[in-house]
Computed example of a mutant assay.
Amino acid sequence: MEPFQEHRWLLWAVVSAVMACTEMLSGDFTLLMLAAGAGAGAITAAIVPGMWLVQVLVAVAVAAILLAVLRPTLLRRVRDAPGYRSSFDKLVGSDGVATSEITDGHGQVKIDGEEWSARTLEPGLTIATGEKIEVYEVDGATLVVYPVFRSLGP
């Protein structure tokens, strides 16, 4: 840490850059707000290099304010944008396979390697284990499914 004593701002800048780059993997805006706080810490370190406590306080304050004020606004704008589909919405139309018998009350399916609770689209319909299914809709945490290779209804 000796080389960073004179140039502590550089350490803050590196931390900020790493967090900002890692944000690209999550898309949750949390690391971006923390990166901005670290950036504020870097600016503070450049202005008052010997006052590490002030640097930390500024970084924490900026990150906290951005997390509380800016992040919810950004998330709302992204989610309200035309064409946005949540991970649940993306399940609609997905193909999978029944891992247990599915009735209109309960069952299990596997979609893209993930296990989900499921029920059939039509009352009285039963889907056998191993049968191919497609997701019709998402009802809470339960997928409403129908068999791919059978006709529905009378």
Rank of each mutant, 00 (worst) to 15 (best):
Cys21Ile: 12
Thr22Ala: 15
Glu23Tyr: 07
Met24Lys: 03
Leu25Lys: 08
Asp28Met: 09
Asp28Val: 09
Asp28Gly: 12
Asp28Trp: 02
Phe29His: 08
Leu31Ser: 08
Leu32Trp: 03
Met33Ser: 13
Ala35Leu: 08
Ala36Thr: 08
Gly37Pro: 02
Gly37Gln: 00
Ala38Pro: 03
Ala38Glu: 01
Ala38Met: 05
Ala40Leu: 01
Gly41Arg: 05
Gly41Thr: 04
Gly41Val: 02
Gly41Asp: 00
Ala42Gln: 01
Ala42Gly: 03
Ile43Leu: 14
Thr44Gly: 00
Thr44Trp: 00
Ala45Asn: 03
Ala46Glu: 01
Ala46Gly: 07
Ala46Arg: 03
Ile47Asn: 02
Ile47Asp: 00
Val48His: 02
Val48Ala: 12
Val48Glu: 05
Pro49Ala: 08
Pro49Lys: 04
Pro49Arg: 03
Met51His: 11
Trp52Ala: 04
Leu53Arg: 06
Val54Gly: 02
Val54Asp: 00
Gln55Pro: 02
Gln55Phe: 00
Leu57Cys: 07
Val58Lys: 00
Ala59Met: 02
Ala59Asp: 01
Ala59Cys: 06
Val60Tyr: 01
Val60Arg: 01
Val62Pro: 02
Ala63Val: 05
Ala63Arg: 01
Ile65Tyr: 00
Ile65Cys: 05
Leu66Gly: 10
Leu67Cys: 13
Leu67Glu: 02
Leu67Phe: 04
Leu67Asp: 01
Ala68Gly: 11
Val69Tyr: 07
Val69Leu: 12
Leu70Trp: 06
Leu70Asn: 02
Leu70Ser: 07
Arg71Lys: 12
Pro72Arg: 12
Pro72Ile: 10
Leu74Cys: 11
Leu74Val: 09
Arg77Cys: 05
Val78Gln: 14
Val78Ala: 12
Val78Glu: 10
Arg79Phe: 06
Pro82Ala: 12
Pro82Ile: 11
Gly83Met: 06
Tyr84Phe: 15
Tyr84Glu: 07
Arg85Phe: 04
Ser86Thr: 15
Ser87Leu: 08
Ser87Phe: 05
Asp89Ala: 15
Lys90Asp: 06
Leu91Met: 15
Leu91Gly: 10
Val92Phe: 01
Ser94Tyr: 02
Gly96Arg: 06
Gly96His: 04
Ala98Phe: 06
Ala98Pro: 07
Ala98Tyr: 08
Thr99His: 05
Thr99Ile: 14
Ser100Ala: 15
Ser100Arg: 13
Glu101Pro: 04
Glu101Asn: 11
Asp104Gln: 11
Asp104Trp: 07
Gly105Ser: 14
Gly105Asp: 09
Gly105Ala: 14
His106Ser: 15
Gly107Leu: 08
Gly107Gln: 08
Gly107Glu: 04
Gly107His: 06
Gly107Tyr: 03
Gln108Val: 14
Gln108Ala: 13
Gln108Met: 13
Gln108Pro: 02
Val109Asn: 08
Val109Gln: 06
Lys110Trp: 01
Lys110Asp: 04
Lys110Val: 09
Lys110Met: 13
Ile111Trp: 00
Ile111Lys: 09
Ile111Val: 15
Asp112Pro: 02
Glu114Met: 11
Glu114His: 11
Glu114Asn: 12
Trp116Gly: 07
Ser117Gln: 11
Ser117Gly: 12
Arg119Phe: 07
Leu121Met: 14
Gly124Leu: 11
Leu125Tyr: 06
Ile127Gly: 06
Ala128Ile: 07
Thr129Met: 14
Thr129Leu: 09
Thr129Glu: 12
Gly130Thr: 08
Gly130Phe: 10
Lys132Arg: 15
Lys132Tyr: 05
Lys132Val: 06
Ile133Tyr: 04
